[in-house]
């Protein structure tokens, strides 16, 4: 009964999920074909696909938007990766003791609450002054942006972890370090991964901010550079590419999480 119902719904579900995207592309195509927008400003989907192909596989002698896609992806990805890893390590390293030790939490909490509402984009001028227009500035923005959701969720995770585990750990003879790493950290991982997922999204937002404003390479730089010479086919190509990159990195974080958190997922199924 349930099986049959599941199977009968499987196909329509897959069909349902492509309706939105297809409708969006159709709308885009109609708008591009109409006389509302000049085709230079809103190129039709085939023109964008051609630009994307040229960006990826074209001969570099044809110009900056030919055959440079791989380099742009590598540059942006590297910044996201380094900045995000710094944020993840610092977020967990600060979040765990801040959630666990009441005194440390009292000290660190107001600081986080004070700094967090400042949009990370507002840090751009200071970032330029302190870290310059290159790699370091971009890393700073990415790390700062993804740090806050990670640290806040880590603190929440630790505070929400079963207090009984602390008793168990102490009874089993764990020292303070073992208590935090073998008992509190695994128990907080579900919450930490919520933060890591929000963080990876913000990392891509901020790497683009950095590339739009200061750094002279990467997908975001290509986007603003192409805008400067009215190459909207490249602008839209860069947008699509950013969507794909953001989606893929989110999937990677989710995949790592689902491996580490199998117990958590299955436990909630068992509780039903």
């Amino acid at each position: 009964m349930t099986n049959a119902r599941r199977r009968s719904r499987l196909l329509p579900n897959a069909a349902l999920s492509v309706i939105g995207p297809l409708a969006f592309i159709a709308l885009w195509w109609v708008a591009a074909a109409s006389s509302l927008f000049p085709s230079a400003v809103l190129p039709a989907p085939p023109a964008v696909v051609a630009a994307l192909y040229e960006w990826a596989f074209g001969n570099p002698v044809n110009g900056p938007y030919s055959g440079s896609l791989g380099v742009a992806i590598a540059a942006s990805t590297q910044r996201v990766l380094v900045g995000y890893l710094i944020a993840a390590v610092l977020g967990v390293l600060i979040g765990i003791p801040a959630g666990y030790f009441r005194v440390f939490g009292r000290i660190i909490d107001p600081l986080i609450q004070l700094l967090r509402p400042i949009p990370v984009t507002a840090w751009v001028p200071l970032s330029l002054v302190f870290f310059g227009f290159g790699f370091k500035g971009a890393i700073f923005l990415v790390a700062l942006g993804s740090f806050f959701p990670i640290v806040v969720n880590t603190i929440e995770g630790v505070r929400g972890a079963n207090r009984m585990l602390v008793r168990v750990g102490r009874m089993l003879g764990a020292n303070q370090f073992q208590l935090l790493t073998l008992f509190i950290l695994p128990a907080s991982l579900p919450a930490i991964f919520v933060g890591l997922r929000v963080g990876i999204g913000l990392a891509w937002v901020l790497v683009i901010v950095a590339e739009l404003l200061s750094v002279k390479s990467g997908i975001g730089y290509t986007l603003i550079d192409a805008y400067g010479v009215n190459r909207y086919d490249v602008v839209i190509s860069a947008m699509i590419l950013l969507g794909v990159m953001g989606f893929l990195s989110d999937r990677i974080v989710v995949a790592i999480g689902s491996i580490l958190l199998r117990w958590h997922r299955e436990m909630s199924i068992h509780a039903d």
Binding site: M164, R167, V168, M171, F183, A187, W263, H264, M267
Partner: peptide, 14 residues
């Protein structure tokens, strides 16, 4: 040296 058995087991689910 004084091992406790808790009412709600308090095992490590992972």
């Amino acid at each position: 040296d004084r091992a406790m058995v808790f009412q709600d087991y308090a095992l490590l689910p992972w």
